[in-house]
């Protein structure tokens, strides 16, 4: 796997497509255990990301990722805005100065992004948040730096589904206690779409 600046741009565009397509599904996930705005938040945020990056000219992946981070932070709000924002900021910092990010570097960057989300959200794995997708994905890639698109997608998907039976102790879903079980965490679902989009883009380029 190699991520150059255009691949990252495509990744973000594909992510936006997925967020628009799944806007109501994500909101539906946020209704029973949250406040019913996650799809709206993600769709608004990634639409702004798309608007932003289609206007700019970028030299490196880090430049794109930084604009993504800043856009998400300033256009989303809620819990997911700063958390996705932090994740992208860490990704950007980790790949700074590189034209083409290889699997190993990307795995490292993901690891730092996951750590960034943990720190911002003062949460850890097993608390039914997006962390439960970011951490397993980062770990899987660390073990297999030459990871395939399939591995990425499958890991993210499985991780998202694992959140279903978890008991939430952070975020709004925590107020639902036992009732949070049996529902997929919305932020984990949107994180899955993000990684699925990357997998799609990698497949196309392969």
């Amino acid at each position: 796997m190699k991520l150059d600046v255009n691949t990252v741009i495509d990744w973000m565009k594909r992510t936006n497509e997925k967020m628009q397509e799944n806007k109501s599904y994500l909101t539906t996930l946020d209704q029973p255990i949250g406040d019913g705005d996650h799809g709206i938040n993600m769709a608004r945020g990634f639409q702004e990301v798309e608007n932003k990056i289609s206007q700019g000219t970028y030299e490196t992946p880090a430049d794109v990722l930084k604009d993504v981070a800043m856009t998400l932070m300033s256009k989303v709000g809620g819990a997911s805005g700063p958390l996705f924002g932090s994740a992208f900021l860490k990704l950007s910092t980790a790949v700074k100065g590189t034209d083409t990010v290889d699997g190993e570097l990307f795995a490292k960057a993901l690891d730092q992004a996951a750590a960034g989300v943990k720190q911002r959200g003062k949460a850890d794995i097993g608390e039914k948040t997006m962390i439960d997708v970011w951490v397993p994905v980062a770990e899987a890639l660390k073990e297999e730096p030459n990871f395939s698109a399939e591995l990425l997608e499958d890991t993210a998907k499985q991780a998202m589904e694992n959140t279903k039976e978890m008991l939430a102790t952070k975020g709004r879903a925590a107020y639902f206690k036992e009732r949070s079980q049996g529902h997929i965490d919305p932020g984990s679902a949107s994180s899955f779409y993000l990684f699925e989009a990357l997998s799609d883009v990698i497949k196309e380029r392969a």
Binding site: I40, N41, R44, G77, G78, G81
Partner: peptide
């Protein structure tokens, strides 16, 4: 902020 969504920093 947006409806039920904290405003941005």
């Amino acid at each position: 902020g947006e409806v039920f969504t904290s405003p941005t920093p």
